[in-house]
Nucleic acid binder design. Sequence first.
DNA 1: GTGAAAGCGCTAACAT
DNA 2: ATGTTAGCGCTTTCAC
Lengths: 329, 329
Amino acid sequence: MPVTIQDVAREAGVSVSTVSRAFTVPDLVKDETRQHVLHTAERLGYRPNRAARGLITGKTGNFGVIVPDLSNPFFPTVLKGVQARAREADYAVFLADCDENATEEIALVQAMAKQVDGVILCSSRMSPSQLERVVGTTSLVFINRQVRDHPAVLMGAAGGMRQAIDHLAALGHRRVAFLNGPKASWSNRERRRGLRHSARYDMEIVELGPFAPRFEGGPHAADLAIAEGVTAIIAFNDLLALGVMSRLADRGVSVPEEMSVVGFDDIPMAGMATPPLTTVAMQNERAGRAAVDLLVNLLTVSGAEAGDLRRELDCQLIVRASTGVPARS
Amino acid sequence: MPVTIQDVAREAGVSVSTVSRAFTVPDLVKDETRQHVLHTAERLGYRPNRAARGLITGKTGNFGVIVPDLSNPFFPTVLKGVQARAREADYAVFLADCDENATEEIALVQAMAKQVDGVILCSSRMSPSQLERVVGTTSLVFINRQVRDHPAVLMGAAGGMRQAIDHLAALGHRRVAFLNGPKASWSNRERRRGLRHSARYDMEIVELGPFAPRFEGGPHAADLAIAEGVTAIIAFNDLLALGVMSRLADRGVSVPEEMSVVGFDDIPMAGMATPPLTTVAMQNERAGRAAVDLLVNLLTVSGAEAGDLRRELDCQLIVRASTGVPARS
DNA sequence: GTGAAAGCGCTAACAT
DNA sequence: ATGTTAGCGCTTTCAC
């Protein structure tokens, strides 16, 4: 029932090779013939079967993306960028959600491998040894994870973290909590690194956690932070920050008058809908696009010298409301 | 470089047909042989090439999902359900974002068609005539869209809307605004329908919009609603509601003391992080799973009699905080 | 119960 | 510039 290349060839009165060439190497067929073939194909509603094509070329025109958890709004924003860029580059994308489970993640890469030219691993939860096992299965590009010299898009936290610290310091905060995210998370290490790098003699940092990077992790984290007597909280991400704020409200601690809260990630909605939450905006969508660029480049280029394999994106503090209230200290 | 069925056959000392059978029709090969083959395959790390298989069977083991906008947090939650159920049924999923653009949507369906066994169209933005054009391209299952007798998962709004209306009435509200979403949206029609169906003699409904179902649409909507002198606002969805609340805060109108706000969709974060927002929770994840069930059923069953083609999910009002403040009226 | 061979839709040599 | 042929990795008759 589907229209094949044979059908088009027969209808157009040429050989299949000519039809094939009209699509893949247009320059090799006479202008007039090509027009005719293309027109016939259009009329018949022919669309090349990429799977069949891939069988012989070894290229599928697809790639995969694996994210830890779709219900974490951070990932859809990255995906949005991936999607947009993928279509521009004429790639179709397989999506999978590994549910924060490294074993699942491996299985998914392997399941996808044969149907894709490469896979983008978003905030991979795999251990280094697990990672080694999948490397080589297919072309890999990482987002927010550094694996030896593999291509990666890294969303740095140094700039945003420094801004956050300076901001809080300027408001008079002297004792601040940092709520750790997942310990296997590169982003968490990166944020801690930024934190240490921005250390100030006049500010004490209390590290808490790790906590699940979700709303549900917030309440407990808030209780611990309050018990520590801090006047400001820097949460691993917005979701956690939101959970924290919810608990603070329940306990009658007002933000930002009594407690300043800072979150990471760019979930514009979070900060906009909850103005006292100050956030460090990440360039999620751009990261998604960059990852596709890297992958396409990797697959296109001769291979040996693949140009820059690493893309670093920075981030920026966004103060939406009156976090500008000095700590009572 | 990849391990093929040939490699396994050679290594196991059997023919390719036997290997193939060991995987697809295990009963047809002797127990002992099968064990040996499967073991060898495992050892070599062989994974059948689904594309090649699909070429001959006509089934790819993949399906596609198209959503209007990944940055609308409603869709990722549905996707989460789709993903979970897809993996259980051993399907891989193609994802595409049509950017609220019907023309894109058509193109995406056609582009996917050859690589999938079916497509799930989530809140399709296509016009009826556009829809007719893609029907027949591949098996289609709709979410929140009714197209003749095509399989669909419908998230009804009647129950939730009635609860919302009764709730607001009980609080003493007599003049309530409904902020319309996209006019091509089935969900919007469904919600309006629920609204009319729940009409009360003691309550006046002011319809406004349509507005984009996004945070950005809220501020303007809020201004119009205030100008209309309503004491409560029912927004098409949570995103819009959040935008409304943001504007209300800017204008010094406190929620819920001076204005009650109700949103739709299940973006748990929205209501949890912003307690004065009352929401009607939809069963997004379940809808995603149901859609996959429908599709799998459609592809598996003999075809003629495909069982139930429609799944209706209901919704429920969630009052998280003190919306329980009577209108001053 | 197992093997040999044909062929799915397509592209890439190799002719012409 | 175009046609012919041989497969890509797999399933599926058809023999044995």
